[in-house]
């Protein structure tokens, strides 16, 4: 039994495995398959100040080793979350973290403040990297100024652990990471999905309703891993790694690249119990490699 605990700033996780926003609902949807309290953290779906209907169907296209989605932040808004969802999830017995999105720095800040008032939500993940909405989302995450403006506004309104989720759709992700660090982010998580498209050759048109979508799944893992390694070696705040993780070995790679915790996303669609399997697998892997704690492998890859 290795020590699996890890920290994201002031936030303590019982193990480094979390769920990626938008792939695990509010956790409750998966309670038939896993003991939710065995997961290090549950990052629930993207929440905005006002309800959003999301994009039209079709929102999904399968690709080799992954999938594209253009859901577009469908959610019932922060008030619904506070009134209806929070009472359901606050007793889960692990960290429940809310992914927050918006279309202006003020939006983000107000949504974050509402979540901040919920006693048992210890952290938020700020989504400045959704590729599927026109207003806001990734628009903030692709420039240092945009990213900094959102984090600055949210930092004033939110005093618990603030994780900022970065977009890979940039020339230099390290400079964005440094910009959000300078504005007081407690941690960064990366990567969100990579923008892509797919074409129906019989219909001669793009498959997704808005033309493009975000690519996720095992096919993005090498890109994600490279970016995690680069960012972890450039910033002083903790890095949460995600992008294509579906096995214990994938998680070990991200930890060795410098992530202090990982998120599992699309793999939940193939195996709804994958999170707990990876957490248990990490324990076994560390034992088999004579490591007493997960900390012993974080950032060891040269």
């Amino acid at each position: 039994m290795a020590d699996l605990t890890t920290n994201i700033g002031a936030l303590r996780l019982k193990n480094p495995v979390m769920t990626a926003s938008g792939t695990f609902g509010y956790g409750i949807e998966f309670s038939d398959f896993v003991r939710l309290e065995d997961i290090g953290g549950i990052i629930v779906k993207g929440t905005t100040l006002h309800p959003r209907q999301g994009n039209d169907y079709p929102r999904m296209a399968e690709t080799a080793g992954g999938m594209l989605n253009c859901v577009g932040l469908q959610n019932k808004g922060v008030d619904y979350f506070c009134e209806k969802i929070y009472p359901e999830v606050c007793g889960i017995g692990t960290n429940v973290i809310v992914n927050v999105s918006g279309s202006s720095p003020e939006d983000y800040a107000e949504c974050a403040a509402r979540i901040g008032a919920l006693e048992r939500i210890p952290a938020i993940e700020l989504n400045i990297s959704c590729p599927n909405v026109k207003d806001g989302g990734m628009a903030f995450g692709v420039t240092c100024e945009g990213a900094a403006s959102v984090v600055k506004a949210v930092r004033k309104a939110y005093n618990k652990t603030l994780i900022v989720k970065l977009s890979p759709n940039v020339t230099d992700i390290v400079s964005i990471a440094k910009a959000v660090e300078a504005e007081g982010a407690d941690a960064v998580s990366l990567i969100n999905t990579l923008m892509g498209t797919a074409i129906d050759i019989e219909k001669r048109r793009r498959m997704l309703s808005i033309g493009t979508g975000g690519l996720s799944g095992p096919c993005v893992k090498p890109v994600a891993l490279r970016m995690v390694w680069q960012v972890a070696h450039a910033v002083d705040i903790p890095v949460v790694g995600l992008g294509g993780i579906s096995t214990t070995e994938d998680a070990v790679e991200f930890l060795m690249a410098g992530a202090c915790a990982v998120e599992i996303g699309t793999a939940n669609f193939i195996d709804p119990a994958v999170t707990v399997k990876v957490a248990k697998g990490l324990d076994a892997w560390l034992d088999a490699h004579s490591c007493k704690s997960v900390g012993e492998i974080i950032g060891v890859a040269e």
Binding site: T23, E29, V71, P272
Partner: peptide
């Protein structure tokens, strides 16, 4: 995709 109401694709 998921079949469980999590991904909101369908």
């Amino acid at each position: 995709a998921c079949g469980l109401g999590a991904c909101l694709c369908c």
